[in-house]
Design a binder for these strands. Structure first.
Lengths: 128, 128
DNA sequence: ATGATTGCATTATTATCATAGTACAATATA
DNA sequence: TATATTGTACTATGATAATAATGCAATCAT
């Protein structure tokens, strides 16, 4: 897992974001067992309390549930997972375009920039 | 001016972002006088200290300079302003695509989503 | 039954952020 | 000259975040 954390936003929020992406992209499959809090915290290099807070947030969202001492599991509601995926994507697109608009780029200009990216062979750090 | 602030990120950072967008999009023109710290703080509904910090950050970037007690002015280096604009745009595009990739959308899929947006008449809250 | 693992709660400490309030030096402006 | 405005510095306070360090109840495996 990546666990690439920044210092400009609350860590627990970033953890929620990363874990949600893992679930929504299927890298953490529906119904799958989630590693223990302490384990995840160690992987991410954060305090267990911080990871615990992130996981608690995700349970409130319905993305996970916990069977007391047997551990924590990703929800099995694939429909919900996909709905959240679409929602996040939609939000990000809107936010991205709004931000570009603030910079003075029209939607058409943004579209053309991406079009250009398409034509050229674009290597960013986005493999697989 | 907009001054739409969120609670999930340091306010002074958001102020830098908003003011930079203002300059870069020409709404705060090169060489133009910037309102006083207290004035800007009142407009944005934040503490003068917070606004002061944001403005100090922007001077460090070279986007503004201050003539002691006569006030603060936007840089006149239009070339620099445009370079920063392009840089921010480039960063945002890369960040956006990387984020969408994490959600499981390929660049082509993202491109098609935007294409779809282009075809349909799209009203978001993004007017000029 | 015993020990290990699980989620979870608790307390304390440190750092950052935002605010409030005050003050001062330099300089336009009247 | 007197006044107001400018940027800037300073101290203090409260809230939030992140960490550290324990501890406990429930349950699973042995």
């Amino acid at each position: 897992m990546q666990w690439q954390l920044r210092g400009d936003r609350p860590i627990y929020q970033q953890l929620v974001e990363i874990l949600t992406e893992q679930i929504v992209s299927g890298q953490l499959a529906a119904g799958e067992k989630v590693p223990a809090v302490r384990e995840l915290a160690a992987q991410a290099g954060v305090n267990p309390n911080t990871m615990q807070r992130a996981l608690a947030d995700m349970e409130r969202e319905g993305l996970m549930h916990t069977n007391r001492t047997s551990g924590r599991y990703v929800t099995e509601d694939k429909e919900m997972i996909d709905k959240i995926r679409e929602q996040i994507a939609s939000d990000r697109i809107a936010e991205f375009l709004a931000g570009m608009s603030q910079l003075g780029f029209s939607e058409q200009e943004v579209f053309r920039l991406l079009e250009k990216r398409q034509e050229e062979g674009n290597q960013n750090g986005t493999e697989k």
